[in-house]
């Protein structure tokens, strides 16, 4: 049984159907990536999994339990963390407060230890711990967003476009972090436009086009697929 199963999911914004029947699986310990152009439905899929959007039909199962009727704030408690597109850090709160909010569903002393762990992972954040998060650079904000997501001790980490708008050095750093998380066994559902980097890292990839899965398979295989190379890796 997969950790996360999405079955024939349909999601609409009013009359416009953004997802027209997507199915996918994420197994424990895997990195699964969704790639595709803008408007393919990648972000919508993640927002539906985390409960911010409600599906029109289809179902989402987490450990075999229905997820698509659970409220968003309850889903975090079940072990799914979502680092949203555009980072969405809380700009008027300090770095440290942002991290503490990541652990909102948790109680106890281990929170401080985990804040320390995030600072170990991202020393730049330690330097800026008392600074308002809105004053951080884009890359630092992305580190904070990932760190904040990790603070809930998730079993499934969903990252939406973590490399968007970052400098090449920063992009490299972010992908190194994802690789590191993978090596420690974290299950990750990654949405990316940077298809080559994402596929290189992923156990499984899904290619989305206008709300449908058009292709799926192991990351390395998709990387070699001619259509994928043409459409998403900018090769002729």
């Amino acid at each position: 049984m997969s950790m996360l199963e999405v079955r024939d999911l349909r999601v609409a914004y009013g009359a416009i159907e953004a997802i027209k029947g997507i199915s996918l699986d994420v197994d424990e310990g895997q990195v699964v990536t969704l790639i595709g152009t803008n408007g393919a439905g990648k972000t919508t899929t993640l927002r539906t999994v985390s409960g911010l959007l409600r599906p029109v039909s289809g179902e989402i199962l987490f450990d075999g339990q229905r997820l698509d009727t659970v409220k968003a704030h309850e889903i975090v408690k079940q072990g799914i963390a979502h680092s949203p597109e555009g980072r969405r850090i809380f700009p008027l709160m300090t770095v440290e407060e942002n991290l503490e909010l990541g652990a909102y569903t948790r109680k106890g002393d281990s929170i401080a230890k985990d804040v320390g762990a995030v600072f170990d992972r991202f020393p730049r954040l330690l330097e800026r711990r008392a600074q308002k998060a809105g004053t951080l650079s884009g890359g630092e904000q992305q580190m904070l967003a990932i760190g904040r997501a990790l603070m809930s001790s998730p079993r499934l980490l969903m990252l939406d476009e973590p490399s968007m708008g970052l400098s090449p050095i920063m992009i490299q750093l972010i992908f190194e972090t994802i690789a590191e998380l993978k090596s420690t066994g974290t299950t990750i559902l990654l949405v990316e436009q940077n298809a080559s980097a994402a596929l290189a890292l992923a156990d499984v990839g899904y290619v989305l086009e206008t709300g449908r899965v058009v292709l799926s398979g192991p990351g390395k295989e998709l990387l070699k697929d001619e259509n994928v190379r043409k459409a998403y890796l900018g090769e002729d």
């Binding site: 975090v76 963390a81 969405r88 709160m93 809930s152």
Partner: peptide, 23 residues
């Protein structure tokens, strides 16, 4: 803790829900 959750909800309600805050 609730006060922090209020600030978070004020600044970004959707993301606050992703933190597990019952907005």
């Amino acid at each position: 803790r609730t006060g922090r959750a209020m600030q978070a909800t004020a600044q970004d309600p959707d993301t606050a829900r992703l933190m597990g805050i019952d907005t």
